[in-house]
Nucleic acid binder design. Structure first.
Length: 549
DNA sequence: TGCAAGAGCGCC
DNA sequence: AGGGCGCTCTTGCA
């Protein structure tokens, strides 16, 4: 496959290296050059997708594949199967330090002090060599390709944006909170709730946002409260609790997804969050802006397809338990995973009495629950599904011994002490806190292998889906084709011309099967999707909504 | 005055 | 004695 690396040079020029040949271009010619070369389907190699791809998209150029060296470097440096020494060389310390770049950074295409003239071809050669020399080359190769495809998806989704009806959003806010208040003030309905809470607790100056204030008021009312969490408050009996809970819910909406949020994140009928592929150590994405990955259900009614378009919403049912079945090769769990409901499958196989028990037991095993209803289910299920439960148990023990663990495709966990930088002035931790810390790390490694492999499955899914959607759109312009507009760990939203919605839904399911084949080739694991075709995101998942419109 | 940490809630 | 994130507010300290 043709591999073309792009490096930025001073004076807004680009160095293009391909095999033994190289040439220079002015930055202004880049989009047309890339557009023409796309016919050869090359893999574009660049330092950071966010630094190159947005301007190409803006020029109407879509790229089929790339290799994101920043993500690759980060991944390979920590991959247990890779000899990290092979990544050392000219400028490699710079690659070590390279953090994510911010899409809104105005310095995007100007050469500045922080963006040295990195020779991407040199780093590319090191990464290729490091993969080739590893004991896990095919899997790492797949992981790098998926990671880079994810980086393309992330930029494309920011570019496209989630279709957003500001009028619907504001009507929703006004209904729940009252009219938009002046800066710094509470909306009417929140203020009314505060008054109600103050009255109920006979605390005229109470600030419900202040924990000490609130605890004092609760105690004065004779309630035993040690924290102000929703779940704790719900257990208390007092006339002030209901308005307090209502206040907390609505205040959260006002603060995180209220008018200020719209002002900042919604432009031109689109919500455009910035995604950060592999932003979490497990390989899951994070987002830095707009709280895209904690996008609350309460505002989803405002995500509405354009006229003549629809949203196809697809999520995987029980992604992580299915991934666990696949990576552990647990045939019993794989059998229970046949069909749309894995937990029900466990009941039907006679492993547990109820669906609730199945869910509690599996989640307990994946998160490391040691007590409670969840922890109690684990021993029985371990006998039933020894390979699956054994895998997470072994990952936990490895963590407690201080060893790193890896995902199916070879992403390594951070080391035990990595996030634990002690102040040298502090006394050394005693044996108890060391043991506590090791157990916590064990819970982390236990979850890491499943969450991380789940993220890999999802990357393969969206990478394949992205290509399928592109082919489906045939030859239309970029913004007239079906495209991904949202991705949330195990769920995607596709904005599509209404006429293509059924085809889009079918492609989403096909892509899921492709991802399963890529990761677990010899073992058949079902990854059934819940798919809805809807006008508004809020209608996804509701029975009957799929046919509507 | 500004920053970091903690609490709490949202999502998976 | 349950994993991963981001965001906003308050508090405590410099």
């Amino acid at each position: 496959m043709t591999r073309v690396s792009l490096s930025r040079l001073p004076g807004d020029r680009v160095l293009v290296v391909e095999g033994d040949g190289q040439r220079e271009l002015p930055m202004t010619d880049l989009a047309s050059y890339v557009g023409e070369r796309e016919a050869d389907e090359p893999r574009w190699v660049w330092d950071d997708t966010v630094r190159w791809y947005p301007s190409l998209l803006a020029a109407g150029v879509r790229v089929q594949r790339c290799h994101d060296l920043r993500l690759g470097h980060q991944l390979l440096r920590r991959a247990p199967a890779v000899d990290a020494q092979l990544l050392v060389g000219d400028q490699s310390t710079h690659w070590d330090r390279l953090g994510p770049s911010v899409p809104s950074d105005p310095a995007l295409f100007s050469i500045d002090d922080t963006a040295e003239h990195l020779r991407t071809d040199l780093e590319d050669a090191r990464q290729l060599a490091a993969v080739a020399a590893s004991s896990d080359a095919p899997k790492l190769g797949l992981l790098l390709a998926a990671e880079s495809a994810g980086a393309l998806v992330a930029v494309e989704m920011t570019y496209a944006g989630l279709p957003w009806r500001t009028d619907v959003h504001e009507r929703l806010l006004t209904d729940l909170l009252g009219p938009r208040p002046p800066r710094g003030a509470r909306p009417q309905k929140l203020e009314a709730l505060v008054a109600e809470v103050r009255g109920a607790f006979d605390a005229p100056g109470l600030n419900p946002d202040s924990r000490p204030d609130l605890l004092a008021a609760l105690r004065r009312a004779g309630l035993e409260a040690t924290d102000t969490r929703k779940s704790s408050l719900r257990a208390l009996k007092h006339p002030g609790i209901a308005p307090l809970l209502r206040y907390k819910q609505l205040a959260h909406l006002f603060q995180t997804n209220g008018w200020a949020w719209t002002d900042e994140w919604v432009k031109g009928d689109r919500f455009r969050p910035a995604y950060q592929p592999a932003g979490s150590t497990t390989g899951r994405w994070s987002s830095n802006g707009g709280g895209a990955l904690s996008f609350p259900a309460i505002v989803r009614p405002a995500a509405v397809a354009d006229d003549g378009w629809m949203l196809v919403v697809a999520d995987v049912a029980q992604l992580e338990p299915r991934v666990l079945a696949g990576m552990s090769g647990d045939r019993a769990l794989a059998r229970s995973a046949r069909g749309a409901d894995l937990y029900q499958g466990m009941v039907d196989d006679g492993a547990v009495a109820s669906r609730t028990d199945a869910k509690l037991g599996l989640l307990g095993a994946m998160y490391g629950a040691t007590s409670g209803e969840s922890g109690r289910m684990v021993p029985g299920l371990t006998r039933r599904y020894p390979d699956a439960f054994g895998l997470v148990e072994e990952a936990a023990r490895a963590g407690e011994r201080g060893q790193v663990v890896r995902t199916l495709l070879g992403r390594g966990s951070p080391a035990l002490g990595e996030a634990w930088e002690r102040d040298p002035d502090d006394p050394p931790p005693d044996a108890d806190s060391q043991a506590r810390y090791r157990r916590a790390y064990g819970r982390f490694t236990r979850n890491f292998v499943v969450q991380g492999t789940g993220a890999e499955w999802a990357l393969c899914w969206i990478a394949d889906l992205r290509n399928r959607l592109w082919r489906l759109g045939d030859s239309g312009p970029l913004d007239a084709r079906p495209h991904l507009v949202f991705f949330l760990h195990d769920e995607v939203v596709i904005h599509t011309p209404a006429a293509l919605a059924d085809l889009v839904a079918a492609e989403a399911a096909e892509a899921a099967a492709t991802a399963a084949g890529l990761l677990f080739r010899d073992l058949t694991i079902d990854f059934p999707l819940n798919i809805s075709t809807v006008r508004s995101y809020a209608d996804a998942g509701k029975p009957g909504a799929a046919i509507e419109a």
